[in-house]
Nucleic acid binder design. Structure first.
Length: 484
RNA sequence: GCCGCCAUCGUCUAGCCCGGUCAGGACGCCAGGUUCUCAUCCUGGUAACAGGGGUUCGAAUCCCCUUGGCGGUACCA
């Protein structure tokens, strides 16, 4: 019987969930789901200087918003488990697989400077490895600060492992530094904590960003030093800015929260991010996937090796697609916070507009929205008065009297339609029936401008339908006044 | 500097492992159609195997070198 697959996502609570972090979490989650395994969430808070209060909650919210649920009820926080790490460090110390180091950061940086200048490998020179047991005890008792370093074994030439994405990766042990595993403040470093925790939680597949590839030998050597089974590794390619540098805040929004606030649907973000570096392969050209679908078909074999540029245009296209296919009631629900923002920004009393009206606006705007935050398009449905001028109302080289005639025609048409027949279909056919088919522009343009005051807007029958008979007539009348 | 990873249209990518189709799809862009405008939608077009050597009848695909990009090189993760 095969072992159950267990993956994990282990972010640091130093800010918001980065879009790259979302992808790492997503792939780990999907991989576990695909093979009916477990996906765990762990908080790596061993760096007290970078700790941000409230960041963990934001992380959890963003993950949940995206639909990524973890299977562990209790979330492991490394800061709660200092005793455990110390115990394991002690074990390594006793077996002489780790050693105390008293070197100051000044001496260390001098050493590095010298090594680099001489084109040498930059790594700890093991000065403290030769310290006698008595001296170490004495210095510690004197209260001297020290760290614990992992001693890279000298009896192996290479550390070779098979990365699930990259294949065989091999690194010489002489290039691997004696990594600090316990800091002088008593906290473990990532290297130690991550190995210990993954072992304790029986993690079978470590899926993480490519930035960890070079330190993987340290981790493997640690597993071996403890006599533990080494998990399988999969290093994901990085997400990049348009200039192919590592995706950063400098060049646009990078947090999941940013995209949520801008009105991106979680299903669109997930769909887009899933395809950034993964595809079904075998000539399959499917573009749209739900989370549930991905849970059934995701595989690690088809994860790309090269970094992927985060292209907002493609995300927008995908978001628009999902918006277009939303049921109007659900769309309305999802746009609540954006309506609120819209009304506040434009100093409009939201109470004046009921749910039915807002839904009408949405049904017209739905296929035009790229982001939900664009809701309330150009304000055309909410202004009490709209400003128009002769110039705006004129279509190409039209004469004033022709503009007037178009407007008059529309006005009397609107007046002739009964309230109960005021719907899109009737408005559309009636409007079409009163205009000269050869000169549609000369009729529709002035009418649309009169109704919207905007060069670009939804068609007049839709606008008229939304704002209603009374207001439509009033707006047309206002436009006619321009010519008096 | 040193160590490592990577390399197909502008972007996301299929094809590579098991050499042999005009190198396929999508976004973007351009053009045409639908439309009063814009957007949507439909149709078409544009555009790539980083370079150089091999191996082979034949190389995007296998091998080597070069170049370029990226990551690591912390008492950060």
């Amino acid at each position: 019987m095969l072992k159950m697959i267990i993956t994990r996502f282990a972010p640091s609570p130093t800010g918001y969930l980065h879009i790259g972090g979302l992808r790492t979490a997503l792939y780990s989650y999907l991989f576990a789901k695909r093979y009916e395994g477990k996906f765990l969430l762990r908080i790596e808070d061993t760096d007290r200087s970078r700790f941000v209060a409230g960041a963990e909650e934001k992380l959890q919210q963003s993950l949940r918003w995206a639909g990524i649920e973890w299977d562990n009820k209790e979330i492991v926080r490394q800061s709660d488990r200092l005793d455990i790490y110390r115990e394991y460090v002690e074990k390594l110390l006793q077996e002489k697989k780790a050693y105390h180091c008293f070197c100051s950061s000044d001496r260390l940086s001098e050493m590095r400077k010298y090594q680099e200048k001489n084109k040498q490998l930059v790594k700890y020179d093991r000065t403290c490895l030769s310290l006698s047991a008595e001296e170490i005890t004495e210095r510690i008792e004197k209260g001297e600060k020290s760290v614990v370093r992992f001693r890279i074994p000298d009896d192996q030439e290479n550390v070779t492992f098979s990365d699930q994405i990259r294949g065989k990766v091999s690194i010489h042990t002489y290039a691997v530094d004696d990594q600090i595993i316990l800091k002088s403040d008593g906290f473990p470093t990532y290297h130690l904590a991550n190995v210990v925790d993954d072992h304790i939680s029986d993690v079978t597949h470590v899926i993480r960003g490519e930035e960890w590839l070079s330190s993987t030998p340290k981790h493997i050597l640690l597993y071996k030093a403890f006599g533990w089974e080494v998990p399988l590794f999969a290093h994901l390619p990085l997400l990049l800015n348009a200039d192919r540098s590592k995706l950063s805040k400098r060049q646009g929004d990078v947090s999941v929260e940013d995209y949520r606030e801008r009105g991106y649907l979680p299903e669109a973000l997930i769909n887009y991010v899933a395809l950034l570096g993964w595809n079904m392969g075998k000539g399959n050209t499917q573009e749209f996937f739900t989370l549930k679908e991905l849970e059934k078909i995701f595989d690690i074999q088809h994860v790309h090796k090269a970094g992927a540029v985060f292209d907002i245009k493609r995300l927008q296209w995908m978001n628009a697609h999902y918006i277009k296919n939303l049921d109007i009631d659900i769309l309305f629900e999802k746009t609540q916070e954006f309506w609120k923002q819209f009304f506040e920004k434009n100093h409009i009393d939201q109470e004046k507009f009921d749910e039915d009206f807002l839904k009408k606006v949405l049904s017209v705007e739905q296929e035009r929205l790229l982001e939900l935050s664009e809701v309330g398009e150009k304000n055309i449905f909410f202004f009490q008065e709209i400003a128009v001028s002769k110039e705006m109302l004129r279509w190409k080289q039209m004469e004033d009297r022709d503009v007037m005639s178009s407007l008059e025609k529309a006005k009397s048409l609107f007046e002739s339609i009964e309230e109960k027949e005021w719907n899109q279909e009737i408005l559309s056919t009636e409007l079409l029936s009163v205009c000269d088919t050869e000169k549609k522009g000369e009729f529709f343009w002035p009418v649309r401008i009169a109704l919207t005051g905007a060069q670009q807007s939804p068609p007049p029958h839709q606008v008229a339908w939304v704002i209603g008979k009374e207001k439509s007539i009033q707006r047309i009348a206002n436009a006619i006044d321009c010519f008096k």
